[in-house]
């Protein structure tokens, strides 16, 4: 049975990845999960310099999901290369680094610093809703997305994935802009901007007032958007948004995603990534499917 998939010439042993920001660089969950079992570890967003992130409370639970407004706290690319990449080198898994910045130059600096590392792919964060500058500012207008994508593509040594925001009128416009600018793949969806109010205190629950909604509550929206993009562009798609089980992951694959990522559910079940990978194998075996490509995008054929 073949579970491996290829995106931009990079082969993944299986289609299961971690969604950026929910898995650190794998150190913390390495206590629960055999990282060798994963198709790829997608790291938390890394900027050119350390970012302190937002004030607390940064997280809130909502029905069937959670809101977060971490604000891309990260130790900066230098520490990341030395410590986090050093750690990940021990494992037989692909490494995708999520890159964030306030300006295009910030992104380019990180991309250039990563050029000579063993990193397999770059995922460009143009969709975090929790920072005032950068990130989503580049991901909500097609021309801005086209601009940053083409500049990053010129500088990048590794294949480039553009991570798209669902907080747009038409996500296929963004997918097409990324493709036209030369992106090798797209990943979606990042979180949906949300809000929670404490009715006893009459105050916002999150210090940032708004936060990104993730978890099972967003899965149907994510599956729909993956399906839309799969019918709009030819580049591969990494699908994510509320995946809690192999069955969820298979929906994304059938909608047209070549790979999938487990995000908020890592917080709920630290073994979720491994269980999804195993569950996909079981599904394929149980249905007599020889190659995972038989189900990728099958609803579109």
């Amino acid at each position: 049975m073949k579970t491996s998939v290829t995106i931009a010439g990079v082969e993944f042993k299986n289609p299961v990845m971690t969604a950026s920001g929910t898995f650190g660089s794998g150190m913390e969950y390495g206590e629960f999960v055999d990282l060798n079992r994963l198709g790829a570890v997608v790291t938390k967003g890394v900027a050119n310099v350390p970012w302190a992130g937002n004030p607390t409370p940064r997280v809130a639970e909502v029905y069937g999901g959670m809101l977060n407004a971490i604000g891309l706290q990260n130790p900066g690319v230098d520490v990341f290369i030395q410590r986090d990449l050093g750690f990940l080198e021990q494992f037989d898994t692909r490494v995708i680094v999520n890159v964030c910045g306030r300006t295009v130059e910030d992104y380019l600096e990180v991309v250039e610093r990563l050029a000579d590392t063993r990193v397999d792919m770059l995922e460009i964060n143009v969709s975090c809703p929790n920072v005032k500058e950068g990130a989503i500012a580049f991901g909500q207008k097609a021309d801005a997305l086209y601009g940053i994508t083409s500049r990053i593509k010129k500088a990048a040594r590794q294949p480039v994935i553009m991570k798209l925001s669902p907080n747009v009128t038409d996500i296929t416009e963004m997918a097409r802009a990324a493709e036209a600018a030369g992106a090798d793949a797209i990943s979606l969806i990042n979180t949906l901007t949300g809000m929670k109010i404490d009715i006893e205190r009459r105050k916002f629950v999150l210090a940032n007032k708004t936060g990104g909604l993730s978890g099972p509550a967003i899965k149907p929206v994510a599956v729909r958007m993956v399906w839309q993009c799969a019918n709009a562009v030819k580049i591969p798609i990494i699908g994510m948004g509320g995946i809690a089980s192999a069955e969820d992951a298979i929906e994304f694959l059938m909608a047209g995603a070549t790979a999938v990522a487990v995000g908020a559910m890592n917080f709920v079940n630290p073994y979720a990534t491994m269980e999804v990978a195993q569950g996909i194998e079981n599904f394929l075996a149980g249905h007599g499917i020889e190659d995972i490509h038989e189900i990728i995008g099958c609803v579109n054929r």
Partner: peptide
């Protein structure tokens, strides 16, 4: 005490 999500140091939700 702080609002937590993962509890294991990955999500950076509960910082001080």
């Amino acid at each position: 005490e702080e609002r937590m999500a993962c509890g294991v140091g990955a999500c950076l939700g509960c910082v001080c």
